[in-house]
Design a protein around this nucleic acid. Structure first.
Lengths: 341, 341
DNA sequence: TGCTATACTGTAAACGCTTTCAGAAAGCGT
DNA sequence: ACGCTTTCTGAAAGCGTTTACAGTATAGCA
């Protein structure tokens, strides 16, 4: 029985010493680079086993090897939207033998002592960037360096050839709003926009406007509010409308999360959904079908977006030619919150 | 206008060269260690600014400095349970100036070529470990090394003094089941357990049994199934019961996620909830109130668990004395899925 | 004036790894 | 016996930091 020293983690040197070889040889058997005698391989492997050796990732990447890890940068993780996305990403990553490290935090623009992003070209092999998590100058730097990047739910900045994957927002929104107009005859339809600058929101609003226009309904700026794709904010936005006695017979909430906020606000105010006011969302997150009333929405293949994004990223990492722009189809899902039954 | 070299990231050496000082000095102004002439500080800072310098985290931690980062290890991120937890963790981390890095992946026990966990004592200052994400031997190693650890939703392995934070599962479950018994008169109450070995599930089942016993209802093993805290699995578990014509008048689904699966299964089978079968969950995730029928459940302060866990972890990191075991109170939330109105 | 303390700065080692280079040993054809 | 490959191995440099250590001025003090 050996003395258990205050177990420092075993290093490559420890393994080398125990196996009676040089660290170079250990490195070789570890990575399968260069020829090593079968006999030596066995000895080294035993030593690694014995010492429970795990290579030090930081040292590894410092010494210039790939990390087998991809990073995901997003502003936050709270919300029903993210779980399917993450699931897709994980599925994709696992499939290709990559690890996924996630950093969720809002991007704080240029303020003197800004924190560096803890996930970058130095500890990952590639980065998935969700919406506006990283600003264009940083994206530029990474891009010019040739670092593998894939954008989620946003297009690449002008001139940069960065693959991006998103969904058919405009088309989905348009068919959703047209459903409200043609099937239910609503004409005062409100829209709750997402966060400022958000691309999804931009396209959804465009779809909304197109639908109105196609049916001769004038666009009324009073009927556009900010829900920020967030239940709490959407709720207060609707409360505000109610207080100001804005008249509407339906709300396109921007996304499902916001839709749930709308429903809470309306219910609180004693309005029936969908009888008094119809509410529709976007995304078809898992709980949409479980809501009361079940939510009419647009199915966006969130999980597929994740898988596809990873696929593109790994293509880039392997030096392949990615699909520059992937637009996944959306589909209207009619349930009850629009007035259908 | 200067020539734009294929922008390699600036290193401390670049900064030193530009400022005309040694790298030691740069390091000193960077970390505020050791005395540096005010004048020099300015010059160095300008150089850093100019070069857009960011220290290389991996190199830093290699050289033995703290990382200002804490890691979160969990089996997965999909499910309504996680967003509030993450939110709590982020709030806590941000509050203390730490970054949070997340690795979500099931733990694969001892199979020869097992992947090392990409988050450990070498790139974080401390680790938050959710349920059974890491096995006891690894926890042991980290612990003996004196590495800061906090356990979420599980107690420390015997003998190890690792802080852990969880919720009053047993008490919550008991009051939930007692509600079903005393208020609604149900006697055939089924229970859907969580994943094998899961502590939450263990205590909830204990609470369930206590409630039965306290009211003279014999425990029937046929009424215990596996839902794994997952909607899909819970759904098929219920379908299985239905197929086998097991009789029950209420289901305690283990958690809210599983409850939603139960409701889908029952609805599919033409059963009314709560009229034919009552369903209750646990956790009170955000969508519980929005479900149809709205879900009777137990409010577990998930977000608070997160905040508290970070607080403990950071206490340990700073060398303080943590609270060894934090048990947060739960509270019965009566809505409609139990039969109340 | 010379001495010592003080303020500042640079040199170099170390962290754990990969990789280039060169050398040793063994096999082969002549 | 000779030289040439081929196979295997080790020494050492380098990745970007921190930090002990060793300076070098400068100021203060006798």
């Amino acid at each position: 029985m050996s003395v258990q020293r205050p177990s420092r983690r075993a290093t490559i040197t420890d393994v080398a010493r125990m196996a009676g070889v040089s660290i170079a040889t250990v490195s070789r058997v570890l990575n399968g680079t260069g020829p090593v005698a079968d006999e030596t391989v066995v000895i080294v492997q035993q030593a690694m086993e014995e010492l429970n050796y795990t290579p030090h990732a930081a040292a590894r990447s410092l010494a210039g090897r790939s990390t087998e890890t991809i990073g995901l940068l997003l502003p936050r993780l709270s919300g029903a939207f993210y779980p399917p996305l993450i699931r897709g990403l994980e599925t994709g990553a696992k499939e290709h033998g990559f690890d996924l490290l996630i950093h969720a935090s809002v991007y704080v623009p240029q303020d003197g002592a800004r924190r560096p992003v803890p996930l970058d070209e130095r500890n990952t092999d590639g980065l998935l960037i969700f919406t506006d998590r990283l600003d264009d100058t940083e994206i530029n730097r990474l891009y010019e360096q040739g670092f593998p990047l894939v954008l989620l739910y946003r297009a690449a900045p002008a001139g940069l050839n960065i693959p991006s994957v998103t969904v058919e927002n405009k088309r989905g929104a348009r068919s959703l709003v047209e459903h409200l107009i043609t099937v239910h005859g609503y004409r005062r339809i409100a829209y709750l926009a997402g966060p400022r600058g958000n691309e999804d929101s931009y396209w959804r609003e465009l779809g909304y406007r197109e639908a109105l226009e196609a049916h001769g309904i004038p666009f009324d700026p009073d009927l556009v509010g900010r829900g920020d794709f967030d239940d709490v904010l959407a709720r207060s936005a609707v409360e505000d409308w109610l207080r100001r006695r804005v008249a509407f017979d339906a709300i396109f909430a921007g996304d499902d999360e916001a839709a749930s906020g709308c429903i809470m606000a309306l219910r609180q105010a004693g309005k029936q959904v969908p009888d008094d006011v119809a509410v529709v969302g976007f995304d078809d997150v898992p709980f949409a079908r479980l809501m009361a009333p079940s939510l009419t929405t647009v199915r966006a293949p969130i999980e597929t977006v994740g898988e596809e994004a990873v696929r593109q990223l790994i293509t880039v990492i392997h030096g392949g030619e990615p699909v520059p722009f992937t637009l996944l189809p959306t589909e209207l899902v009619v349930r009850q919150s629009c007035g259908c039954k």
